[in-house]
């Protein structure tokens, strides 16, 4: 019995050691960005891991010399709009597919599956020309449209969630004379907080991370960039030597809010990914 206990203790301290080493490895890049954002020497390549001395200059320059505040508000605006639209569209479609029976239901589900398997970049250029023919390129509206137009196809996770809500609830409501619309927003939606939050979370964070579509749509119109495109452009070969530390400062500025949102809501994220199979 005693030897078991000792073995247990040894293995536990070994695990603690491994976890500590891994944590350090995982944190090094993060610490390095933060240090770089406070670094006084310019340039992208430096000799030492630790800066010579610390300064807030990079943050100040970021907010005064570049379009960063503009980019930030652009992204915030786009993220809010596309978040609201995406949630409404994807949950509405999920409700219809989960609860109602109509002739086009199966074909719609299959088409959504098939469309989802084409690589997204493939139609990038065509989307650009469609937007151009509408006179929408280089505008924030175009970004909102692009981010939320696909929402009609992203209903599978929410549908899986709605399927777990007992049908007897709707049937009882129907007997009381409720219409399908009333069942949707008075019964199903209040019961679907986790999936509502998951959809909102993913839709809200997407515009902060996407630098491909935003770049193609915005072209060279600097003041309409989102933060992702703006920061990405800072690492251009022409600018990298001057702006690398500012890039790091900008990265810290957008990583902090997203990280806070994510850590607060990670429970819903897990439930969303595993389709409700896991309830921690």
């Amino acid at each position: 019995m005693k030897s078991m206990k000792i073995r247990e203790k040894v293995s536990n301290s070994l695990i603690h050691l491994v976890l500590t080493i891994m944590s350090i490895l995982w944190l090094i890049p993060i610490i390095w960005v933060i240090l770089t954002s406070l670094r006084i020497e310019k340039g992208s390549f430096v000799k030492n891991f630790l800066p010579e001395s610390l300064t807030f200059d990079n943050y100040i320059k970021l907010f005064t010399d570049t379009f960063f505040p503009q980019w930030f508000s652009n992204t915030f605006f786009v993220a809010c709009c596309s978040c609201v639209l995406t949630v409404i569209i994807s949950l509405g479609v999920a409700y219809v597919i989960s609860r109602m029976r109509f002739k086009m239901r199966k074909p719609f589900m299959n088409i959504a599956l098939i469309l989802g398997m084409f690589p997204g970049f493939m139609s990038m250029i065509a989307i650009y020309y469609v937007l151009k023919s509408m006179g929408l390129t280089q505008s924030l509206l175009a970004l909102i449209i692009v981010y939320s137009s696909g929402a009609g196809l992203q209903f599978y996770i929410a549908k899986g969630f709605f399927d777990t809500i007992p049908k007897s609830i709707d049937e009882a409501a129907k007997l009381d004379g409720a219409t399908n619309a009333q069942i949707f927003y008075k019964i199903i939606l209040p019961l679907s907080k986790p999936i509502l939050i998951y959809s909102a979370l993913t839709a809200f964070t997407a515009p902060w991370m996407d630098f491909i579509f935003a770049k193609v749509i915005m072209g060279t119109k600097n003041e309409n960039f989102t933060v992702a495109v703006g920061l990405f452009e800072m690492l251009d070969k022409e600018h990298i030597d001057v702006q690398f530390t500012q890039f790091a400062a900008g990265s810290v500025c957008i990583a902090i809010p997203i990280t806070i949102i994510f850590i607060l809501l990670q429970r819903f994220y897990v439930e969303g990914v595993t389709g409700g199979a896991v309830k921690s």
Binding site: I89, M122, S123, I145, G152, T179, N180
Partner: peptide, 29 residues
Amino acid sequence: LLDRKFHITLLSLPVLGVLLFTILPLIFM
């Protein structure tokens, strides 16, 4: 449209979006 045909109400906007910004570009490519 709010009851028996509620699916038409909820689906028409998403379908239009998908048609214009997913299916049309995809067929093109």
